[in-house]
């Protein structure tokens, strides 16, 4: 695969207009380039000159994906999430941004972490969560579109959780989630339980990183769907290994106060 020069690249569907982007301005490529570029087949343009964006959105609805290839891809994503910090300065810069502070991992905040490696490990779930978040945003749109006329806007907490455990889970993992529970201690917390998360079925977490759960990626997807339906919340993944299910994961969903206030009114 050859990487194309930005000036040579044809118009890519769904990518923002380069003239609207910040940074160095680039001339918009003339249309004739897109004709020459689509002659050869590459990932975006097949030999039939149709990109994946030209396909019908329902075409991949029932299709299945190789679990092995996903496992390798996800493995690289986990490594990427760990490696991206190049030094302590880079780390501090990232953790200065409020969205990067892993409050759910270390309540004391990253400043009190003992070492750099420990700090990196505590940031990894947040990064995986962000990866998942971008997927969840798109997935919600797609699922609602596929529902067609029967699509419904969920307004109640139970309704949206039901949507996640059945529709969303079935569309990505081809099975519903294993359980949904309400926290006994906190009014605003719900727990979604997956006995064996597909994404981490081949992953063994080393002992020194026992806090990490790679299903943080799935937590990000759930968080994005909840946010997209106007249920602002924070979703985190926690390992609860049992004898029967060593990979058992609990997704802790903590809703924003505004959600509970609205729920009380409804």
């Amino acid at each position: 695969m050859q990487r194309q020069d930005p000036l040579q690249s044809p118009f890519v569907p769904f990518s923002p207009n380069p003239s609207l982007q910040q940074g160095t301005p680039t001339a918009t490529a003339p249309l004739k380039h897109s004709l020459t570029a689509s002659q050869s087949s590459n990932l975006r343009y097949s030999s039939s000159r149709k990109s994946i964006y030209d396909r019908h959105l329902n075409r991949t609805q029932r299709s299945e994906l190789s679990k092995s290839s996903f496992a390798f891809l996800f493995g690289e994503m986990v490594q990427y999430a760990q490696k991206r910090v190049s030094g302590i300065q880079d780390l501090e810069k990232k953790s200065a941004t409020p969205s990067f502070v892993p409050t759910h991992v270390s309540p004391a905040g990253p400043r009190h972490l003992k070492s750099l490696s420990e700090a990196i490990h505590s940031l990894t779930p947040r990064r995986l969560n962000l990866h998942g978040y971008t997927i969840g945003q798109r997935l919600l749109e797609l699922l609602l579109w596929r529902d067609g006329r029967s699509a419904k806007r969920e307004t109640r907490i139970l309704g949206i959780l039901q949507f996640i455990t059945t529709t969303l889970y079935r569309s990505i993992f081809n099975k519903p989630a294993d359980a949904l529970e309400k926290s006994r201690d906190n009014e605003d917390e719900y727990m979604l339980i997956d006995n064996d998360p597909m994404v981490s079925s081949y992953i063994s977490i080393p002992k020194e990183m026992s806090q990490l759960n790679c299903a943080a990626f799935v937590a990000g997807i759930i968080e994005a769907v909840l946010d997209g339906c106007l249920f602002p919340s924070r979703v985190t993944a926690h390992s609860v290994p049992t004898e029967q299910f060593p990979g058992k994961t609990v997704f802790l969903i903590k809703f924003d106060e505004s959600v509970l206030e609205r729920e009380a009114v409804l």
Binding site: F72, G75, V78, Y202, I203, S204, P206
Partner: peptide, 16 residues
Amino acid sequence: KNPFYQIEMPIRCEAF
């Protein structure tokens, strides 16, 4: 398929 395994190094994978 375990991202925490370093190739050619001793295998310490609990799932294995």
